[in-house]
Design a protein around this nucleic acid. Structure first.
Lengths: 346, 346
DNA sequence: TTGTAGGCGTTATCAA
DNA sequence: TTGATAACGCCTACAA
């Protein structure tokens, strides 16, 4: 081993060396480390002192091999780039930390092969559990089976539920809440800017949107549904297309807040005022939308809870405890200033 | 071991069992796995086939113990919550993946004790290298020494450089570029909204701001420097305080884009128009600022390169290769519409 | 080309 | 209260 500060060769400090120094057996040494009851406090202190002096750090790897427990979990996300995933990473890491677990992180890029590879790697690393955010394999029946012996918890909804342990927000209800709010304000031509692939979240939000329309006897007009990209650009193109319609919408429900930011921008470019000429509802409630002009009305999802519940579920499964599954979390309307009754303007 | 799908008890598949089934020794088995040259392709195929059939996954832990290489690195971030850290996590994870490394992630919350604990844990896990983002220990001379035998690379600047292997952006130059841009536009009263603790990035950006003022013979007025919080709220409070000044600024250079978002909001609330009455420069260039009203002029930092360079440096160190250190990356002005010559309004 | 045996650093089961 | 000794699952000289 090389000391990267001095470049000197160093010999690894192991239980051997310390036990030797202290004149005790490996067993006693081990007891000292894990503060086992069957040990003289004095000898233990002596051993630990030597350990500190020699800067001894137990090898978690050797320990794992011996105990058959790695105290690690695997966390696979599509990408850490959106606030959503970042918040989930944070809450999971914190809980893992307080529960004595270390977490491996990997990205799967919404690619099935990649996700499979990640799971396989985690399995090889002997993780005790796996959490997958925005899993694509979750849709394939039995695809999560190969991770035999390791509990897998999924965050994000599935269309074809092929897995029991999932934590998700109720996208359908959330989208419905948003749309009904707009209907209550008096809007009749309500558009939706979604995502291109219509994977579970996108599909569900669109379903909620449609359900709200139908429940209130409003026609479902395909021309009012635009496939965005969950980013500002999609929102921008979306409004441009929607406003160019012969009979343009008076309100838009967006897949997420970023999309709404793009819509806001596009509306401004066209001289369309929000909320006077166009009402707008986002989804997520990222901190920033509070500071937009106008502050965005949105649907809040408790992302921290998503991660927390998933981690708790995983800990339960690891411990062989009973656990409630699946978990579906509610979303909540946050009224700000981007909505108004239609026809207020021009 | 318990199969979490069926609840059945299962016996771990190991090299033993497969070698036994195939009627070969452990050595041959090992050779088959690591496609060693000294093995009959036929027997190898036979062994691998059995492995596939029995869903065998080699134990990375046992392998690590035997080879004394874990093929893991540790990544400690302050928090994954800002785009900044998220992008770094992504680029590091990708490079690690293509280099055959798995990454442990942890947060240190800008707390020295926590960071020390994380490093210790990583060391125990036998990681081959560590990257710390926004390290606080990096300032303490020798604090990174305990991670003996493991190379440590730091991302983010240090005030008192006590560590050689760092990757950072040139905050001083970036801030100076921003400020000089405003000066060139004709501004004389230029404010700065920074961060409260004035840790390295905050301190350096303030230094760059001051350096620009001095270089152009402009007075340095402490009243024009406000301590924000790197978030929208700080920007909001910042403008409010600055605009209330007897001789308010005509331009503001913000610590980061989020701060600028708050400033934009605050200015609007006060009826102050950007850029007519107030010019604004941010820093980071997060995707969103392009869609603000007006689109934000900002200083771009190449966060992806930050992560990439750090990871390359770490790989070099792990391999015992020479590596260039420290690395300082330039920042670049991105002109958009939030700046104008002063006095255009009123 | 294949096999034997020892070792990696720790825990755990017995005895003492 | 302490100590041998055998795992844990894999790699690697060295020998056959």
């Amino acid at each position: 081993m090389k000391d990267h500060e001095t470049g000197r060769q160093t010999r690894r400090v192991t239980m051997q060396s310390i036990a030797h120094q202290a004149g005790v057996s490996l067993t006693t040494m081990s007891r000292a480390l894990n503060d086992h009851p069957d040990i003289d406090p004095a000898t233990r202190e002596r051993i630990l002192a030597i350990g500190r002096e020699l800067r001894y750090t137990p090898s978690a790897i050797a320990r794992s091999l011996a105990t058959q427990r790695s105290h690690t979990i695997g966390l696979a996300v599509r990408t850490p780039l959106d606030m959503w995933a970042a918040q989930i990473i944070l809450s999971i890491e914190e809980l893992a930390h307080t529960s004595g677990y270390e977490v491996f992180i990997s990205t799967h890029q919404a690619d099935a092969a990649r996700e499979r590879a990640v799971l396989k790697t985690f399995q090889g690393r002997q993780v005790e559990g796996i959490i997958v955010v925005s899993s694509v394999l979750g849709e394939e029946p039995g695809a999560l089976r190969p991770s035999l012996g390791v509990p897998v918890v999924l965050i994000s909804p599935l269309l074809h539920v092929a897995h029991r342990y999932t934590v998700q927000t109720d996208d359908v209800a959330g989208a419905r809440t948003a749309t009904e709010y707009l209907i209550r304000l008096g809007h009749r031509r309500i558009a939706h800017i979604g995502v291109p692939d219509w994977a579970a979240p996108g599909y569900n939000r669109q379903q909620g949107y449609r359900a709200a329309l139908e429940a209130h006897g409003l026609p479902w007009d395909p021309a009012l549904v635009f496939a965005g990209d969950a980013h500002e650009g999609g929102g921008l193109h979306g409004v441009q297309a929607l406003l160019a319609l012969p009979d343009p919408p008076t309100a838009i429900f967006c897949f997420n807040d970023l999309t709404a930011v793009g819509v806001l921008h596009g509306a401004r470019l066209q001289g369309v005022q929000v909320p006077r000429d166009l009402s707008l509802v986002g989804l997520d409630d990222v901190s920033l939308v509070h500071y937009l002009d106008p502050p965005l009305t949105t649907i809040r999802q408790d992302v921290q809870a998503l991660g927390g519940r998933a981690m708790h579920m995983l800990l339960d499964l690891i411990a062989g405890r009973e656990t409630q599954a699946p978990v579906v979390l509610d979303m909540e309307l946050v009224e700000r200033l981007s909505c108004a009754a239609p026809g207020a303007g021009a």
